[in-house]
Structure formats: C-alpha cells, structure tokens
Amino acid sequence: MSASYAAVGWNRQKKIYDWLIAGFCTSYLVLFISLSLVFNEQVTFETLLIRSTSTLAVLLLHVILAIGPLCRLNKKFLPLLYNRRHLGVTMFTLSLVHGSFGIFQFHALGNINPILSLLTSNTNFNSLSAFPFQALGFLALVIFFLMAITSHDFWLHHLSPKVWKTLHMFVYLAYFLVVMHVMLGVIQYESNPVFVIIIFAGATTLVTLHLLSGIKERKTDNRQFALQQQGFVYVCGVKDIENSRAKIFCIDKERIAVYRHENKLFAVHNVCKHQGGPLGEGKILDGCITCPWHGYQYLPQNGQSPPPFREKVSTYDVKIVDNKVWLNPAASAEGTERPGAEIKD
C-alpha cells in the first residue's frame, strides 16, 4: 500500500501460493522430460527444454486467464487471484526460456543477428501453412515481458492504474498470438489431431468463462431500481447480504458495495484505489473490507485504509425499513464517516 516498497510483498499466504506454483512447475517439467526420454530417448536436451517450457507456459496462461472470470462466477476461487501476478511472472520466465532456446537453436548458428533472422528469414505472410509463426510467438513474448517488468506496484502508481490496466489487457492479444503461434507452428507438422483438440478445448473454455461472467455482470449493472424515496433506492432484503460479505448494486452507472459487518450495513464505492479491484467481491477481515485482488483494506464505516496507509474510497448512506435495504446513491467525499444502518432481528 503506501508504506515503503519491498521487492516482493511476501506474506504467509503468498509464500504458500508461490511454493505451490514452484512445486507444480517442477513436477510438470520433471514428468514431461522423463516421459519424453522414455518414449524417445534420442531427443536432444534443447528440444526437451523448448517443448517442456512451452507446454507448461501455455497451460499456465490458460490458468491465469481463467482465474478472473472464475472469481467473478464463484468467490471460492478468490485465493487464486490473490497472487496471480506471481503466476504471470512464472509464465513469462518459462516463455523466455522457451523463446531464448528457440532463437538460439534455430537462428543463432547463422551469420546474421538471431533476432533479425527470426523476424526476416521467413516472410510468407500470405501463406497460412508456411506463416512465420515464430514472429507471433516473439510478439507475445514482448507483451509478456512488458507485463512482467511492470508487475511491481511501483509501476502501477507511476504509470497510473488506467495506463497499467490497459497495458496488462494486452495479455488478451498475447493469448491470441500464442494460439496462432502454436497452430501455425508445430501443429502444421503434426499428424496427430490431439494437439488441435487440446488448443481448441482450452480456447473454448476461456471464451465461455469470460462471456458467462461478463453477461452475469451485465445483468447486475443493468438492473433497474423502481422504488425510490427521498433519494434512497430500494435494493434488496436484509437477509440477502451475508455477514462480513457484500452485495454490489449499480445505480446511475456507479457500482456500490453494501457490506454487512457486526450487525450493521455500510456502503462504499466498489472500486479499490489500488488497481480498481471489486471491493464488494471481497470480505471483512480483521474489521476491514479487504479487496479480493491484492488485499488492500478499508474500514467499512469511513472507507479509509487503516494507518499508516492513506487510501480512501467514497462512502454512501444506507437505511433499513421493515427489513428492506435502502441505499442513497449520492456519494459522500472519500473517507467520510457514515453511521451505517443497524440490523434489528
């Protein structure tokens, strides 16, 4: 948050997460290499490395891209999102190993610069089966590189959350490039359709998850609130909100999170100051609303981060009449203390 920077913001959960990533990646690589050696003992070391890292990177990329929509569909997946950037950097590192060995093996033996060779040795841009697929992979690697080097929060602050998010949305373009890199590359010389089926299944899963979660949210966003009284809007029943959790309502194009904490309801702006994470999808931990994305915290009654942090979000008025929750969409200034609404059983 706003205290001094460290290289990596490790805590217990993040360490467990990272150990799991490292363990999974190591087992995958060991298994892949051993199986390859059993079935084809002639395979060279470079080829093994190129194949094992690339397949693992593609697998991780699918996991990374599935985490976002999975969390929006079901909160049980939130722990995966918490440290997604470490997963991203791991994926980039694997892609870098794959890319470097690929460039070395295929382009470093000539007398021209390997990168130049990669970009210019094949110019069949008008052919599908002979398309320069390596250039696609290279471009995707450049995107992953830019994302990895800006993954520290320092860059989020200095590039501004908006620029940062836009830069990181290029991962979708990179994903498309990776799919085509695989399809126009190695698959063009494989007679086994299983590779096409795997890639197709992966892409279909991601597209479905993203469309489902997007459509689900559009419903929430487009909900019309008919009942209005003195600026307050009827949103839901008291029982609809679980303890220490929130429901999100979109009124006048703003998303507001209504939290239930210690038998009271409080409303804050749904957008976290850190990266624009959905505060209403988080929960109350240690008396603070905790953003599901990276754990930024705010007090429910005033929307302020506990000291020494200085982030503040807008607060809203809530009232309860006959077990019905009414919300006033007029925002108070960021960090304004609001009394909240008491729940009487």
Binding site: G68, S129, M183, I199, A203, D221
Partner: peptide, 26 residues
C-alpha cells in the same frame, strides 16, 4: 468490465476461426 466483455466477444469469433483455418491449412 465492459471492455473485457467486448474483447472476449471478438475472441469468441476470431480464436475458433483462427484455429479452424490453421487446422485446415495443415
């Protein structure tokens, strides 16, 4: 979020199309 949905709507068409065309080109 809207932009995410727009991108994935486009990908829902472009990615399968890309895969199928590349597959047919084998």
């Amino acid at each position: 979020r809207k932009r995410h949905l727009q991108v994935w709507t486009a990908w829902a068409v472009l990615i399968p199309a890309g895969i199928v065309f590349a597959w047919l080109a084998i």
